[in-house]
Design a protein around this nucleic acid. Structure first.
Lengths: 122, 122
DNA sequence: TTGACAGTTGAATAGTTGTTCAACTATAAT
DNA sequence: ATTATAGTTGAACAACTATTCAACTGTCAA
């Protein structure tokens, strides 16, 4: 069956359409859920944070090393790490003068690889 | 072996560290790749676009219907659809007065579900 | 204790981005 | 032909965000 626009329907047509939708159980998920989803992707939607996650995927590292690796100031890196930390994607541990950061979530790698696969096939 | 900070190393220690890194083949991927990755996530990092993708996952739909479903103006929806379209995530087909949009990529659903799973377990 | 280094923080700035508004095109109906 | 509807577009505005800068804390070494 061809899809139709709800905008052009008579009352009766709209009624039938609604019945159809009922039987197919088409429904939007909770709005807050979609907001959480987009918030999560927003975290990944920044090249600095992606690079940080990628680097920490391989190595536990401290702020200065990450700053060297990405050619950024320690301040900028620290700001972004704080965001990743408050989202519970990385965890920090202080040892002496250094603060070492590590991934706290194993899903991240999977999602990164998933997206890479998408990009490669596109 | 405990991780160390490159910042505190002597030349000799740094040399040994580099040898270690060589054997472990730790390397950052091409920078442009990570930029593509974050660009992709940036697309998903907006609740309007996530809702559009979610809706189109179930239904091919036209602009007015999507606008009704999300309680937005047709203009706002059209702008966002244009972004999704230029990223080749949706495709458009004009039929009569309507323009019907549909997902053009099957990876999207998988990635959405992946992220949802992550959110549920967190 | 003093100096040096690692990292954090808040304010300021510059760049980005989503929505609105108004004007426009194109299709269908009377 | 005229009118109404569906959708697109560009400019303008407001909100958001990443980086920089300067000041600060805490730790180690001399």
């Amino acid at each position: 069956m061809d899809r139709i626009s709800l905008q052009n329907l008579t009352i009766e047509q709209l009624f039938n359409y609604n019945k159809l939708m009922d039987t197919k159980k088409i429904e939007m998920p909770d709005t807050t859920l979609l907001y959480d989803l987009s918030d999560f992707f927003k975290l990944m939607g920044d090249s600095t944070r992606i690079q940080l996650l990628w680097a920490l995927e391989e190595n536990e590292m401290c702020v200065g090393d990450l700053a060297n690796l990405l050619n950024m100031t320690k301040s900028a890196v620290s700001h972004q790490l704080k965001i990743l930390r408050s989202a519970k994607l990385v965890k920090a541990e202080k040892r002496g003068k250094n603060v070492f950061y590590a991934l706290s979530d194993h899903h991240v790698k999977t999602i990164l690889e998933m997206a890479l696969e998408h990009l490669n096939e596109g």
